[in-house]
Write a protein that binds this DNA or RNA. Structure first.
Lengths: 256, 256
DNA sequence: AGACGTTTGTGAACACGCGCACAAAGTCAC
DNA sequence: GTGACTTTGTGCGCGTGTTCACAAACGTCT
């Protein structure tokens, strides 16, 4: 409210774009570490991470001066510093809400457990799955949401429910004190200030690919139905005009 | 190669950032359409999509002048125009490579089928799943990759394999003529110019959340092990110094 | 027909991020 | 110890994206 600019901007200095790349560097560093590499130059690390080397150096310089001129970066040390900056030196308790196809995949996803993220609970509304054991956890009923969050000290909620249920559940986890949400449901969640939401949308990525794919093929307008008289914008008085191909029904659920 | 700048930039005018938002607008519009809304103002649509209204208007203006001043945008018409621009008025043939937990979830994901994306094939290397029927499709062996791509005219490949297999498979699909790849494996894929790759990384999103969560709690350095003598950067001559907590083993696979 | 309120489309200022290029700082060889 | 080489850290210019604010355009009401 009293913030000068508008958002969580440069509060303590690390640009958002940099934060988004740190996990990529971290992954590349772990890969090097496994291969027994002790020291790496910005050029090599940048290549492994798929970025420009100047960008990498500038990113790392935001964390501090952890390199050695003429040599490069010590892999172990850099891993430690990035992990610390990202908050991976402590454990984060995660709850997965919605145990459909996607929720199940997430529960079994190795990338969560092995990076300081401990999946402590699975919740669902469907009586058919409540009580089932998945990835070593017993699925709890969604009614117990608040109790489970409090019990385990959940700080990150992963929403993997159908779109129709997402906002209501988001409101509940936020009310229960969770301030970070990872949303897989295809809706824009609205949350109070101070709560961080990140969205992963599988179909959006595909649509972006389709756009580029189409452009390679010569841009839009290749299909037959290109004309559509704009009409007189009546307030629903006249009959609905014919729908062009492609405007099918709305995607409802994140799981089939 | 002979491109003036460097990339697929402003080739025909629509900024990349705009393209990334069009699917979001499209989703909001479908939601309005379902509720029977005929006309919508930029202010309302922007709120539904979670963006600034000026940004929305500028985004839409890149497609053309499809609004009516004093009134707003006709929902049906705008849906059609955005769909056309994104290339959703035609069907895109998709192949999913890797039928683990995630691949299975993707195969059953309703958001693909109902937006002009037709999943035509599932492939895997594991003999235990080859031949199985999932989401109405029989899983084919990865050896048949090139044949399957050619048979169905696949134009988008979805890679949902362990990280170790991803690059090799990516090379194969590209060699087979695919120019769009959606990558779920936690690696940076390198592809020749002209091939579009988009990456979805579940654990990266969590790590970004952890960063913000930590900052709310007072920034890094809260944990005990904060000091790490930088050492003399020897070339692997001395004994490895003790590792701080959190630098565990490398995440290998996208599925557990 | 004309005045009024509403909403689009966009010009202009601003903020952000990227990449080049280079000085500073370190290592290594002798 | 000195010089040559390597690599980091960063100042700077540029392009992209975002936001404000407003004139032009449209519908509506009298």
């Amino acid at each position: 409210m009293t913030r000068r600019h508008n958002r969580t901007r440069a509060e303590r200095g690390i640009p958002e774009a940099t934060v988004a790349r740190l996990p990529v560097y971290l992954r590349a560093l772990h890969s090097l570490q496994e291969r027994g590499v002790v020291t790496v130059s910005s050029e090599e690390l940048a290549a492994a991470a798929g970025v420009n080397s100047a960008k990498l150096r500038k990113d790392l310089s935001h964390l501090g001066s952890y390199g050695t001129r003429g040599v490069g970066y010590e892999v172990d040390y850099l891993i430690y510093q990035i992990s610390r900056e990202l908050g991976l030196t402590q454990d984060w308790v995660v709850a997965i809400i919605g145990v459909g196809n996607l929720g199940r995949a997430l529960a079994g996803y190795g990338g969560f457990a092995s990076r300081g993220f401990r999946v402590a609970a699975l919740l669902d509304a469907d009586p058919a799955v409540v009580g089932a054991e998945i990835a070593g956890l017993t699925v709890r009923h969604i009614d117990e949401l608040e109790r489970v969050i409090d019990e385990h000290g959940v700080s990150i909620a992963v929403i993997a429910t159908p779109a129709s249920a997402a906002q209501a559940l988001c409101d509940r986890v936020v009310a229960a004190g969770v301030t970070s949400v990872l949303n897989f449901a295809p809706v824009v969640l609205s949350v109070p200030e101070g709560v961080e939401v990140r969205k992963v949308d599988l179909s959006i990525e595909l649509q972006i690919l389709a756009f580029h794919e189409q452009r390679k093929a010569g841009g839009p307008g290749e299909s037959a139905a290109d004309d559509w008289s704009k009409g007189l914008s009546g307030h629903g008085d006249g009959p609905r005009r014919e729908r062009p191909p492609g405007t099918s029904e709305y995607i409802e659920a994140v799981e089939a």
